[in-house]
Design a protein around this nucleic acid. Structure first.
Lengths: 245, 245
DNA sequence: TCTCGCGGTGAACGCTGTCAACTACGCGTC
DNA sequence: GACGCGTAGTTGACAGCGTTCACCGCGAGA
C-alpha cells in the first residue's frame, strides 16, 4: 500500500511527524489554558518525552508561539479564501457578508488563535516572523479582492470617495496598496481600511469578552455593521450630501 | 505645615504609600517589559525588599495585574471625561473628534495599559474585578454622552435609524442601554456600537502594530474614520452645514 | 509596661525555560 | 558485515519565577 519509493526519506518523515505532534499538543494546551500558560515542559510531559528533547525541534518557547501564530494566520486566511471562492461572484454584498461571517465564525471558534494573531506583537523590536507577515497579507488580500471586484463592477464611485481624501491620505493609501501589490486606488483602500478596522474592532471586542453580556449573541448586529460598511461605500453612486468632511 | 491631627493614622498612611510604590514600580516594569514579563520578584528587587513582603500588600501577581488594569481603565476614563468637558457643547462633531483623538493619544501613549485593558479577559471564568467593569462603564459613558447630546440636538434622525433595526436588535440594544442606565434608544445605541467598534478596531490595530508601516502616521485617516462614523449617523437628517474640522 | 499585630526577613517548594554532557540507535559508507 | 557519524533522546543541572511558611522586631494601643 505504501509507495515503493517514498518521496521523502524516512528520517525526515519521522521528524516532520514529531514536529507536527509537538505543534498539535502545544495547540491543545494553548486552547485550554491560554497563551500565557503554554509550557514546553507541559507539552513534553503530554508527549511522554524529556523537556530538553523538544529543543531538537523548536528553538525556544517564543519561536514555538510564533510558529503557532503563523499557523493560526494561515488557517484564517484559508477560511477567508474558501468563503470568497464559494461566494457568488455577482453578488458583491452577499459575498462580502459571507467572508466577514466566516471571519467572525473563525474568531469565535478559535479565540486563542485570535489572541495570538491580533494581540500585541512582541515589542522587542524583534523582527516578526516573515511567515506571519505573509499570511496576514494573504488574509487581507481576500478583503481587497472583495473591494476590487465591487469597484470593477462599478458599485463604488471612487471619484466621489477620492474627493474626500486629502493628498496626504491618498499618498498613504497608495503606499499601502503598493505594499500589497494590489491594483486599488486610494478610494478603495480607504473603504478597505474602514471595513477592516470595523470588522476587527467588533470581533476583538466580542471574542475578548468586552461586549456587554446584555447584548446576547450579536450576530445580527454584526451583519448590520458589515452591511453598512459596504453599503456606505456604494451609496456614493447616488451621492447624498455628506454633511462633514 | 503638616496638619496637627492627621486625618488618616500614620500606620495606614505608610501602608498606602508602600502600596502606591508597589504599583508604580510594577507599572514601570510593565511599561518596559510587557505584561508577560512583570515579575513580583523584580518589583521587590527594584524596591529593595524581600519578594515575600509584597504579599502583605498584594494577594497575587494576578490580582496585581487586575489592579493595574483597573487603574488603566480609570486613567482612560479620566482622559475621556476631561476631553469631553473641555469640548464645545454646541459643536457635537468637534467634541466627538476631541474625545476620540484623546482616546487615540492615550492608547498610543499607554500601549501596555491598552493591552491590559482590551486584551482578552482571563478565560478562567474568574469573576472580573468589579472595579474594572465600573471603569469600563465610565469610559463608554463618555461616548454615550456624545451621542445622547447629539440626538437631543436633533442631529440624528433616530426614527430613520430605527427603521433599519430588526425587533431583535432593538431588544438587544435596549438591554445594553438599560445595563448602563442610559436614556438612549436603540438607534442611538446602534450608532454608539458602530462608533465604538470602529474606534477600538482602529486603535487596536494601530497600537498593536498591525497596521502596515507603509501607512505612516495615520492620524488623518483616523480623523476621517471618526468623522465618517459620526456623519453617517447624521446623514439622514437635513445636513447642517458644518465646516470640516 | 505589656502585648498584640503588622511589616519585613530568609528559607524552602515546585514550577518554569534552557543548556550541557552523555547515550543509543539508524543510516550511509568502506 | 563492521564502522563511524549524525541525530533523537536521556539525565542533570542552573537560574528564575510565584508562593508559602516560620520567624523576628518594632510601633501602637490597652
Amino acid at each position: 500500500m505504501a509507495a515503493v519509493s517514498s518521496p521523502v526519506p524516512r528520517r525526515e518523515r519521522l521528524r516532520r511527524a514529531t514536529l507536527e505532534e509537538i505543534k498539535r499538543t502545544a495547540h491543545a494546551q494553548l486552547a485550554e489554558l491560554g497563551p500565557a500558560a503554554l509550557s514546553l515542559r507541559g507539552v513534553a510531559r503530554a508527549m511522554g518525552m524529556a523537556p530538553s528533547a523538544l529543543y531538537r525541534y523548536v528553538d525556544s518557547r517564543e519561536v514555538l508561539l510564533e510558529e503557532l501564530t503563523a499557523d493560526g494566520f494561515a488557517s484564517l486566511a484559508d477560511t477567508l479564501e474558501a468563503a470568497f471562492a464559494a461566494g457568488d461572484p455577482h453578488d458583491h454584498l452577499g459575498r462580502w457578508l459571507d467572508v466577514t461571517r466566516a471571519h467572525r465564525r473563525w474568531a469565535l471558534n478559535h479565540p486563542v488563535e485570535y489572541t495570538l494573531i491580533f494581540g500585541p506583537r512582541v515589542p522587542e523590536g524583534g523582527l516578526v516572523d516573515n511567515r506571519v507577515a505573509a499570511e496576514l497579507k494573504r488574509s487581507v488580500a481576500v478583503l481587497f479582492r472583495c473591494m476590487t471586484e465591487a469597484i470593477e463592477a462599478g458599485l463604488v464611485d471612487t471619484g466621489q470617495v477620492d474627493a474626500g481624501l486629502t493628498p496626504t491620505m491618498q499618498t498613504r493609501l497608495r503606499a499601502w496598496a503598493a505594499d500589497h501589490g494590489v491594483p486599488i486606488g486610494p478610494a478603495g483602500m480607504a473603504v478597505c481600511l474602514t471595513a477592516w478596522t470595523q470588522l476587527h474592532g467588533f470581533l476583538s471586542l466580542e471574542t475578548f469578552g468586552h461586549l456587554p453580556p446584555a447584548l446576547g449573541d450579536p450576530a445580527d448586529l454584526f451583519d448590520r455593521q458589515m452591511t453598512d460598511v459596504f453599503a456606505q461605500a456604494c451609496r456614493t453612486i447616488a451621492p447624498r450630501p455628506r454633511p462633514a468632511g
